[in-house]
Amino acid sequence: MLGLLLLLQVLASCLWLGHGEVVTSFTSCPQFFYAGTTPNEVLNPKNPAWICQRYMNSYHYATLYDRDRRIPVYSAYKYKPGDATRPHSWWFVEPQLIGKSSLKEMEKESVLIEQQKFTLDQIKESQAVLDDYKDLKDLDRGHLSPSGHQDSSEGKMATFTLTNIVPQDSSLNNGQWNAYEFKTMNKKTKDCTSTYVVTGAVPGNTYVSEGRVNRPSHIWSAACCLGDTGPKDAWGAIAENDKNEVEVLSLGELEKRLTNLYGGMVTLFNNACPREQSSHPH
């Protein structure tokens, strides 16, 4: 009898939470956060969506999404750079953000409209669409979870969803941010058995696409590097989203900087990740 009650409770909670993987926490994909600890609630927007980014029946990273500003707050993943090919050039949207959708995986706009009979307006309501990024001047579709930090073709493909994208200064995206993502990260993670990353965007005061999509004021990233016995190093990076400069700093310094920018005390990782820079040289 107790078993039946529990089952009914679980079923009721599933119904109450609605469809798909956009729920009120990352319970389906805690593996992308060290020790299951997510960044604290200071980062949460007014109208959030917690997305376990699912493609080809697997989770590849996690994203906290801001439905009102139509940009991700952050994406979290395990750093596993690999040279698998990226076999497509299209972009996905997230059907789970559309009301009355039971689809659990990212999908192309055209497929949702032609096969699933959604309208473009229904898709646009709570997320960015391809048109929003069409004629941007000096701005790129900037990945928070970059394809180059994923080791499988599916993982790389899964980063090409507009829920993982912000309008990013083109010179920064192709310049110093790219150098941080590939050269600095490669150098700093040499002695790590695994590395957890959270990359985010501080909302700005300006919008693109007729006020639909926020242009972040800053892009930031934080990493916690594990050794054989747990975290042994951590660091951060931050850049203003209108110049080609990246500052690499300790995790503690980055959290302080974000505390000022978000207006509340920010913590990005489990307390075991060191806040001060490690003394050994990189």
Rank of each mutant, 00 (worst) to 15 (best):
A84Q: 11
A84F: 07
P87T: 13
H88Q: 14
W90G: 14
P95V: 07
P95Y: 08
G99Q: 12
E105A: 12
M106N: 07
E107F: 02
K108F: 01
E109H: 04
E109P: 07
S110M: 09
L112S: 04
I113L: 13
Q115G: 00
F118S: 02
T119Y: 05
D121L: 08
I123Q: 06
E125G: 02
A128L: 05
V129M: 05
V129E: 05
L130D: 12
D132N: 14
L136H: 02
D140A: 14
D140T: 11
D140G: 05
R141H: 05
G142Y: 03
L144P: 06
S147F: 11
S147G: 04
E154M: 07
G155L: 04
K156W: 07
A158L: 08
T159A: 09
F160A: 13
T161K: 01
T161F: 03
T161I: 11
N164W: 01
P167I: 01
P167A: 05
Q168S: 09
D169S: 12
S171Q: 14
N173H: 11
N173P: 09
N174T: 13
N178K: 15
N178E: 11
Y180E: 06
N186Y: 11
K188C: 01
K190M: 10
D191L: 12
D191I: 04
D191Q: 11
C192P: 00
